[in-house]
Design a protein around this nucleic acid. Structure first.
Length: 546
RNA sequence: GGCCUUGUGGUCAAGAGGUUAAGACGGCGCCCUCUCACGGCGCAAUCCCGGGUUCGAUUCCCGGCAAGGUCACCA
């Protein structure tokens, strides 16, 4: 069979460049020794998964930690899944969480274009070459035929797929092919595999270590009937031409690694290194098992969730880093103030088994990150979050910068010996300080109404906003004594029945009356931030509400 | 079902042929001039199972078992 003629018939494009031209156009990168070229290759579905960030972070640290390059390639070969504006979503959400690309879609670079749709000619040129060399052929099988074969294979417990004797179109005669073409039958281009599933070999995965791979024997589709390549083919051509040195991708690709290995070989390309990392999982209460974080079922699977809740981007990044590199957390505790770019990220330290998503851990890290912020930084963070996600009444609260700064200084314990760690997210922080902006409603006291009235009446009568903390507390104790509460905790503990309660019970009444909460930071300071007038108004309102 | 991967407290995990089997989160308890938060101290909790190799195995080997992944003209 005249393969050149066949190639021309199957891929008649006249504007294809010879593949040598591509090799020349995209030469090996001039980078220092050890520099890694990594990439992120998402589909533009418009949805960003936590897992996307997870892999992105690994790729980013590896590239930039080694003086290499990180690029963004858009895998838009499946037009059904494409969503308008998705690339903006990808770039902006990753940028928010600290991942910046050196080149790629909408950024530019010498190895573009970075949209696979725009690379159609390149794939077709390589596919054509494969046909010329007899390593690819047209397949006219319909979906129904393929499904029928698969069914028969499963029934007979055979390996399903298009291979060997089941590859009907593999050995079509010249006449049959041209006849089908003349009849206008749609066709795909399949790779002609020479692999043997009984051959196994050891492959070194950068993350998993030694793994055994079975040779591929599937005649996989490389060009779909619309002439667009499949993932497998596009991956091989792109990562070769873009000179990727290390492919870090999700574990779900491990199974198709044999296909990629054979494809790289058939095209005469040098195989990049691969690292397959596990996805973040979650316990499914309903089923009792583990599963991947699901876009449908788990709100925390979406990157949008973290922005809506107001998680600090550094907190999310730090949490993910603790999962990515087991020694990261130790490093961070040792150098709490160093930027995480200084951590030496190591591919070898990446976990081999999938980690469970741990909201408690994220929250703990979030508290730590927020408690390291200055009042001004926290204010800016709150405002930025509020602009996008806060309800209206909350946004108006943020208007008084000076007042809010005082509130934050107090609630974050700034200036005291120990910083407080009450804030987890912007949303939660805004909610917990809401009482500074509006009087509390629906107060619930543990004490009876008469006691509340007595305590508030007595304490507020003695209250003087010019008192310092000690004087303030002294008055609290006097109130306690006067009403039969113990002002001395030791005395109270020795004989609890001798008193109506103790100072903390007295303070609680005032606290609830003024803030609506049983637990707050230092009440004395709260009162001075609130202002005397407001305090008296709230105390009166509390008595009136009884 | 076939193939691949993984299996140390509830979670993330360090670890080595012999250790009281780190640390962190979470839980619990105690302490800390008003609660909370912070901080301090302490407690409970782990080597999937069965064989083998070995003086000795959680660690090495072999079998199970369990979990995850994958078997498309989707990526």
């Amino acid at each position: 069979m005249d393969l050149n003629k066949l190639a021309d018939a199957l891929i008649p494009d006249e504007d294809l460049e010879p593949i040598e031209a591509y090799e020349e156009k995209y030469p090996a990168r001039d980078l220092p020794k050890g520099a890694e070229v990594t990439r992120l290759a998402p589909s533009p579905t418009g949805f960003m998964h936590l897992g996307n960030l997870y892999v992105a972070l690994a790729n980013e640290r590896i590239a930039h930690g080694s003086g290499g390059v990180l690029f963004l390639r858009i895998e838009d070969t499946d037009s059904k899944r494409k969503v308008e504006g998705a690339v903006d979503v990808i770039r902006s959400s990753l940028r928010y969480f600290g991942v910046q690309f050196d080149e790629g879609a909408d950024i530019g670079g010498a190895y573009g274009p970075y949209y696979q749709q725009q690379r159609a000619k390149i794939y077709r040129a390589y596919a054509k070459e494969l046909i010329r060399r007899g390593r690819a052929y047209p397949c006219f099988c319909t979906e129904e035929e393929l499904a029928a074969v698969r069914e028969k294979q499963t029934e007979n417990k055979l390996l399903p797929g298009y291979y060997g004797e089941f590859a009907k179109c593999r050995n079509l005669t010249e006449e049959e092919i041209y006849c089908n073409l003349a009849a206008g039958k749609p066709y795909v281009i399949r790779f002609r595999s020479e692999g043997d599933v009984n051959q196994k070999s050891v492959f070194h995965d950068a993350i998993k270590g030694e793994i055994t791979v079975t040779e591929n024997n599937q005649d996989v589709v490389i060009l779909k009937s619309d002439g667009i390549p499949t993932y497998h083919f596009a991956h091989v051509v792109d990562d070769h031409l873009m000179r990727t040195t290390l492919v870090i991708r999700g574990e779900e690709w491990l199974a198709s690694l044999p296909i990629h290995i054979e494809l790289f070989g058939a095209l005469g390309f040098r195989l990049p290194r691969y690292g397959h990392n596990c996805s973040i999982q979650k316990i499914d209460e309903a089923e009792g098992g583990r599963r991947k974080l699901s876009k449908r079922k788990d709100p925390e699977a979406s990157l949008v969730f973290y922005r809506e809740e107001g998680y600090h981007p550094l907190a999310v990044r730090t949490y993910l880093m603790t999962l990515l590199n087991s020694n990261f957390e130790e490093w961070r505790m040792k150098y709490p103030d160093k930027p995480l770019e200084e951590f030496k990220f190591s591919i070898g330290k990446m976990g081999k088994s999938g980690a469970l998503f741990d909201l408690d851990k994220l929250n703990d890290i979030s508290k730590e990150i927020l408690s390291s912020l200055s009042a001004e930084e926290m204010y800016d963070f709150l405002c930025e979050w509020a602009r996008g996600y806060a309800p209206e009444e909350l946004r108006t609260c943020l208007a008084d910068r000076a007042y809010l700064l005082r509130v934050l200084t107090l609630c974050m314990g700034i200036g005291s010996k120990k910083r407080r760690k009450d804030f987890i997210t912007a949303r939660q922080a805004a909610e917990t300080i809401a009482y500074f902006f509006r009087a509390p409603q629906n107060l619930s006291f543990r004490a009876d109404g008469e006691t509340v009235k007595e305590v508030l009446g007595r304490f507020m009568a003695s209250y003087d906003p010019t008192d310092d903390n000690a004087a303030w507390f002294d008055k609290m104790k006097k109130t306690a004594d006067a009403l039969g509460f113990a002002s001395d905790m030791k005395a109270y503990k020795a004989a609890p029945d001798a008193y109506r309660g103790n100072v903390s019970d007295v303070a609680e009444i005032v606290r609830v009356a003024l803030t609506g909460q049983a637990n707050t930071p230092d009440l004395c300071t709260i009162m001075s931030v609130l202002g005397e007038e407001e305090c008296r108004r709230r105390a009166a309102a509390a008595v009136a509400s009884l």
